[in-house]
């Protein structure tokens, strides 16, 4: 564990906490894409199957359980909570997620470390996470309302993987022979997907104004 990876994990955890707080405090999920939340739940389920058969560390196990529990809690709020679910803009959150899931799964079948069920599912989760934010970014473009907390949520969610990129560079130079091409390429694509959002987020922050996305 290095400081970059720890910072990445904490940023990831914080992003989820911010989203949960937004939903619980404001009793509203306006501007939040349920599709992205469901894609992330799929990412966590397919990636953390090893919870059942391999123990890495207490930290690793606890974090995986927290990510799984919070992901399903957010989905429960957006689908079932009587007040919150009325604030979900269903007609705007229409991204065809199958166009993300199917290509990622096919790619996981073609490019992976080993043709086993858990390895293919794990690889699928790596590819899917790279594009899971797309429904959320599309929803922002459509609804234009980037409220502060949702903006912070997306910013931190993008930042965590950028910190992981630094972690991979660090590990490459400090751990002899350490290589993870699949994760590195996917993580780079994932971070690039956020670049446009980062640009407008930082601009709004520097001008100390509410974030607005172009027409």
């Amino acid at each position: 564990m290095n400081i970059f990876r720890l910072a990445g994990d904490m940023t990831h955890l914080l992003s989820i906490i911010v989203l949960l707080l937004k939903i619980q405090a404001t009793k509203s999920c306006a501007g939040v894409s349920l599709k992205t939340q469901e894609l992330y739940a799929v990412v966590f389920v397919t990636r953390y199957l090893d919870l059942f058969y391999s123990f890495i560390s207490l930290y690793n196990t606890v974090m995986k359980i927290i990510f799984l529990l919070t992901a399903f809690t957010i989905i429960w709020y957006m689908r079932k909570h009587k007040v919150v679910c009325q604030t979900y803009d269903k007609e705007q959150d229409t991204f065809r997620v199958l166009f993300l899931i199917v290509p990622c799964f096919v790619l996981a079948l073609l490019v992976n470390h080993e043709m086993s069920v858990t390895e293919v599912l794990w690889t699928f989760s790596i590819y899917l996470e790279a594009v899971a934010i797309l429904p959320q970014l599309v929803l922002l473009q459509r609804t234009k309302n980037v409220d502060n907390l949702t903006g912070n949520y997306i910013f931190m969610l993008g930042s965590y993987r950028a910190l992981y990129l630094v972690n991979w560079v660090y590990r490459y130079f400090t751990e002899l022979g350490y290589r993870q091409w699949i994760v590195w390429v996917s993580g780079t694509v994932q971070t690039c997907v956020y670049l446009d959002f980062f640009y407008y987020y930082v601009q709004a922050w520097r001008n100390n104004e509410r974030m607005k996305l172009p027409g």
Binding site: D50, S57, F67, H113, E114, Y178, Q180
Partner: peptide, 10 residues
């Protein structure tokens, strides 16, 4: 090929 090391990252 990639380090088939244990998946220690989240």
């Amino acid at each position: 090929d990639d380090t088939k090391e244990v998946k220690d990252e989240l």
